[in-house]
Amino acid sequence: MPTFLPRTMKSLLLIACVMLISACQQASVTFHGKNITGIMPDLAFSLTGEDGQPVTAKAMTGKTVLLFFGYTHCPDYCPTTLMALSQALKALPEKTRRQVQVLFVSVDPKRDTPALLKQYTAYFSDQVMGLTGSHEQLDAITKRYRTAYGYGEPDADGNYSVSHGLAIYGFDSQGRVHLMMRNDERVARMAEDIATLSRL
């Protein structure tokens, strides 16, 4: 088969090129966290705010948004992440800080009433807003940001744990998605990424 090798080689080269191109899509902005521009969808949600009123993504126009999922009875990840975020915010200049809105979405609406969320988020920073909603609304936003949540078995006192994602999603002032931060990212690096995000 004289034509066998060149044809095979050509096909393989073509396939390798396609794979390389798709793997090497260069991101324009650099973050310490992961640049997810174009990978995840832009900001959209319909939830209930701390005053019990509906809040949608429209209300966030002009703000740099950081989105995080959790619940107020969370013993570990939620308080530590919110603490790290509020420290990172403190490290930013006043003007930049005021532009940032942290959205803490509780996936435990049974226990987390708007009033409780208000009390909880105030403990961390003025820039943190608690949100929750019906399971339908929560399913919509968790599916959108490809994160899971679930409930553990309640103990004798009725306390139960809630599993949730650990990512912090960052959106620019137009609600376009750019950044995914790990909850255990160092505070200084978080602050740098938030500052970069606020300039977009």
């Binding site: 044809r7 096909s11 990978i39």
Partner: peptide, 30 residues
Amino acid sequence: FDPVVATVLFVGLIFFWLWPAVHFDAMLSL
């Protein structure tokens, strides 16, 4: 259906989608 291409693609795709960075993005983007 070329035997070499089919084999390289078969193995290559497994490796490609399991490449940690590629896998990460694939699990994030619908």
